[in-house]
Amino acid sequence: MESYRAKKAVTQGLIHVFLIIFSFSMLVPFLWMVLTAFKTQAESTSIDPFVFFPSSWSFDSFSTVWTSYNFLYLYKNTLLMILFRVICAVLTATMAGYAFGRLNFPGKNLLFSLILIQMMVPSQIFIIPQYIMVSRLGWLNTIAGLVFPGAVTAFGTFLLKTGYQGLPRDLEEAASIDGCNIGQQFLVIMMPLTRSSMVSLGIFTAVFAFKDLMWPMIVCSNASSTTLSAGLAKMQGQFSSNYPQLMAAATMASLPMIVLYLIFQKQFVEGIATSGGKL
């Protein structure tokens, strides 16, 4: 019994060693990003491997990047893009998901197969025509242009449909006896029950929009009208070797989402994990 217990303790210890080393390698890029952002340029390019910490914690790089790169605009654009995409996606997908999951209507199977086809096709195939449409609409360098391809979501419809299918059948019967029409049943009874699927879709949509690089680069070439991701790409071209400034920009761009993740961890993990690899 003693040796069994000792063996178990050793196993646990080894697992912790592995997990700690792995955690460390996951965190190093983040730590290095933040530490470098506070360093002077000379310190950041020091070849002494033991200059890990800045000699003095200077916010200069943050303030330089903030003013010379209009970070306020980048935050605002990213926030608005995310907000509108989440509202559009959750609203349209929850309606369509309810219809596909709970109602019978002509052409249902055909329309649903279109949803499945869209989910299988790589999104790059849509981009050239989407760009041409946005430019014809005069939406280049606007929030509307950023939101455009995310106005509806096949994946979200699929997700919400699954959510609605999981609800018990008698709910609607009880409601229709009470004299509710389908719209009222949906709004008052059914929709509140799929709140967790809606939250998952909302978070997935937000993170996906936040991470997207190609679309904002294509439709928003102006430095003040683009998003954080695409803004970073632009900055890298300009400050290519001022590492404290680049890392300050990367820190500022990453921080909001990381803070939100740490607060709403459970919802984030669920929301992203339901995405089925689309991220």
Binding site: S229, L232, S254, Y261, L279
Partner: peptide, 11 residues
């Protein structure tokens, strides 16, 4: 371990 999922690939 999940942290990189919420960081922008650009950063």
């Amino acid at each position: 371990f999940f942290l990189p999922m919420v960081a922008a690939p650009a950063a």
